[in-house]
Design a protein around this nucleic acid. Structure first.
Lengths: 130, 130
DNA sequence: TATCAAATGCAACATTGTTGCGTTTGATAT
DNA sequence: ATATCAAACGCAACAATGTTGCATTTGATA
């Protein structure tokens, strides 16, 4: 089994997640690290964090990929079944931790993961639109 | 206002959609047209079809983008609120026309579109796994 | 058949993500 | 403190995906 290490790059990425209220793309994270490390390293760090269930990957309606820190309570195996909201105006993606979809699916499908993303206007942009 | 035209390329793409039971990626469609037209043209045709609500765009959990023909009944404005299933094994994406999620979202969000994708094993692959 | 914009082809480019490989570095044991 | 060893890294190269500008072609209309 692999033994994970706490590298400067990984620590920096985790701090960035901690500070951010919204989900971040690879490019945004890379910019925020200010060339602390290579582009590829960010990809590898994100891969590991997703694998370790520290962050989750969010695929947006427009095809962009973002990452956000998990706030679950140390569950062993978990599905990120909460919704994500993607604002069409400010382009921010946020977790709606409490919005969970209910649905009925034919029994002959085996569901391992779900992605539930809503897009439209977030409270901020909705306000400034009036 | 723009007046759409029925070009050979567009007709070919629509036929491909008609024949396919699953959602198709840009690359798959391009291959199926057998170099009838340029790669860029496929992109532009797909853009138009999505805009005209003839096909809908499905973003998968792995970030891949696929397109499928809409089967709605001439609704004027509609949200593609049905679910999509993405098989981890055969990689096929299908529409689950009858699976619609229900959810409760805070009133200060304005939802314009939703993306609900499930991934796991489809009936075919589930069977062959036994 | 002339007209005119919609649609196309082509080239060039940007972004995103992956892989291989030699080097560096963090955690552990000595 | 230092040796050890693999995890993690940097770099280069590559592949896939998507976008844009512009000259050319083509489909629908008059």
């Amino acid at each position: 089994m692999k033994i994970a290490r706490n590298t400067t790059a990984k620590t920096a990425v985790l701090e960035i997640f901690e500070k951010s209220k919204t989900a971040l793309s690879h490019a945004e994270i890379h910019k925020l690290t200010e060339d602390l490390c290579d582009r590829v390293t960010i990809y590898r760090i994100l891969d590991r964090l997703v694998n370790d269930d520290v962050v989750h990957k969010i695929v947006n309606l427009d095809g962009t990929v973002k990452y956000a820190k998990c706030h679950h309570n140390a569950q062993r195996v978990h599905i990120h079944n909460h919704a994500h909201f993607s604002c069409e105006k400010c382009l921010e993606v946020t977790c709606l931790e409490n919005v969970k979809p209910s649905y009925i699916i034919p029994h002959n499908y085996k569901v391992n993961d779900i992605n539930f993303t809503l897009s439209g206007l977030c409270p901020n942009c909705l306000n400034s639109n009036i």
